[in-house]
Design a protein around this nucleic acid. Structure first.
Length: 261
RNA sequence: GGCCCGAUAGCUCAGUCGGUAGAGCAGUGGAUUGAAAAUUCACGUGUCGGCGGUUCAAAUCCGUCUCGGGCCA
């Protein structure tokens, strides 16, 4: 598509942003990099933590620069949340605070729910209260901003319909058997192609970076906790589940047209 | 050839004193605005290996056959 549009590729994959994770994250090959210019691959050190806001900060200038040269940015990936931020903008919310998060980690979930309910009952009523992540984030917004998360988030939701009418994109669809076969092939190629050595070589990684599918599984293999076949099975299952979540996410993005491969 | 153990959901296995079965994982669907390759919610009919017997009633007891695994020859 990039070739057809005289375009340049911009990565929107949370893990292909990192250096040193090329094999595990299935970063494009040297040959693929040669076909069209690629941007935002391997731009973060594994010790750094990324988030959706940082991604937008990285991607916006790159996209604008491509456009200024008269080329078409072809954004591709990966993370639904990162893409959503890029395409629909960020709500005026405070950035996550590691210290506060660490503090909240120590609290039982019910305490966090109680605090959120006291500070912002509206947000509490529309948050999945079993989901520690979501509860923590909503509470974090209240605590850091001194305002109600529900108020801050409401404004943002009104803008999105307008923005999405200007977007153009496709979402590739495959049958489940085809998808699963491709995932199995991809995992096999990774493990045979240096993924184990790649993970062994990474020493200090951020808690963010170590969530890459394959990282923990290969660490367990290196530690002798599981064998190679089990490692492969675990990576396959995690990848299938991720692919399914991507399908759910992108199905809701009405501006994306389905493309059957 | 003889003896012992096993056979229950796609996989690994539970299943009390007989009352027609349930967990984990996998799978399927959903949620999702600064951790997102993360996090989270919902969904469990399967000749209980086959055949026969006992019983009001068998995954459960008895017999036999088949297939695994082990021990002895």
């Amino acid at each position: 598509m990039a070739a057809k549009l005289d375009g340049e590729i911009v990565n929107a994959d949370a893990f292909q942003l990192y250096r040193g994770l090329e094999i595990v994250s299935a970063t494009p090959s040297k040959e693929e990099f040669g076909i069209r210019p690629h941007h935002l691959y391997g731009v973060l050190d594994p010790t750094e933590s990324a988030d959706a806001q940082l991604y937008v900060k990285l991607a916006k200038p790159v996209i604008e620069e491509i456009q200024s040269r008269g080329k078409t940015p072809v954004v591709t990936g990966g993370s639904g949340l990162y893409l959503k931020f890029l395409t629909h903008g960020a709500a005026p919310l405070p950035t996550g605070d590691p210290a506060l998060r660490a503090e909240m980690e120590e609290c039982p979930l019910e305490d966090l729910v109680a605090k959120l309910t006291a500070l912002d009952p509206v947000e509490a009523s529309r948050t999945a209260l079993q989901n520690r992540r979501f509860v923590s984030r909503a509470l974090e917004i209240c605590l850091l901003s001194g305002q109600k998360a529900s108020d801050l988030r409401d404004g943002w939701e009104k803008q999105t319909a307008e923005i999405s009418s200007q977007l153009r994109g496709i979402v590739i669809q495959r049958t489940r058997p085809d998808l699963h076969a491709r995932i199995a092939q991809r995992t096999r190629m990774m493990l045979d192609g240096g993924a184990i050595e790649e993970v062994a070589a990474l020493k200090d990684v951020s808690t963010n970076c170590e969530k890459a599918i394959g990282f923990r599984e290969i660490r367990a293999l290196l530690a002798g906790e599981i064998d190679r076949a089990t490692c492969e099975d675990l990576i396959n299952a995690a990848t299938r589940q991720y692919a399914k979540r991507q399908e759910s996410w992108f199905r809701r993005e009405k501006w994306l047209e389905p493309y059957t491969a």
